[in-house]
Simulated assay, not measured.
Amino acid sequence: MSRLQANLLLSLAALIWGSSFVVQQIGTGNLDAASFTGARFLLGSLVVLPFALRQFLHVQREVRAFTLRDGLGIALTGSVLCVAAALQQYGILRTTVTNSGFLTALYVPMVPILALLVFRKKPHWSAWPASICCFVGTYIMSGAQNVVLASGDLWVISSTIFWASHVLLIGIMVQKTEAPLVVACGQFFICGILGLFLGQYLESPDLNVFAGALTGILCMGFFSVALAFTFQVIGQRYTPAPDAAIILSSETVFAALCGAIFLGERVSDFQLAGGLLIFGGIIAVEILPMLKTARILS
Rank of each mutant, 00 (worst) to 15 (best):
D269E: 13
V267L: 15
A228L: 00
G280P: 08
V253L: 03
I287A: 08
L248W: 04
A260Q: 05
L218H: 09
D269H: 12
I247C: 12
I246A: 04
A213M: 03
F229L: 12
L263I: 14
G274S: 02
T215D: 12
A245F: 01
I282C: 15
F262M: 10
A245K: 07
G280I: 12
F279G: 07
A284G: 09
C258I: 13
A255V: 02
L272M: 09
A244Y: 00
G281E: 10
G259T: 12
G235V: 10
F231D: 01
G221F: 05
G275L: 08
G259D: 13
C219R: 03
I278K: 09
S249T: 05
L276P: 09
I261F: 15
A284M: 15
I282G: 05
D269I: 14
I261C: 11
I282E: 09
A260Y: 10
G259A: 12
D243I: 06
P240N: 10
R266Q: 14
D269S: 13
L288E: 00
A273F: 14
S268Q: 12
D269N: 15
T252M: 14
G212R: 02
G212P: 04
T230F: 00
F229Q: 12
V253R: 05
F223G: 04
L214H: 05
I247D: 13
L227Y: 13
L248T: 00
G281D: 10
V225N: 08
I246P: 12
F254V: 02
I278P: 08
F262I: 02
E286R: 08
A273I: 14
F270A: 11
P242Y: 09
A260F: 13
F222N: 01
T252C: 15
A284L: 13
F279C: 01
F254R: 03
R237E: 15
F254N: 05
L276M: 14
I246W: 10
I282M: 15
I217K: 10
I234V: 15
A245Y: 03
F262K: 10
L227E: 10
S224C: 04
M220G: 02
F223N: 07
L276F: 15
A211Q: 06
I278A: 05
V285N: 02
L288N: 05
Q232K: 06
E251L: 00
T239L: 03
L227W: 09
T239N: 09
S250N: 10
T230G: 00
I283Y: 09
G216H: 01
D243W: 00
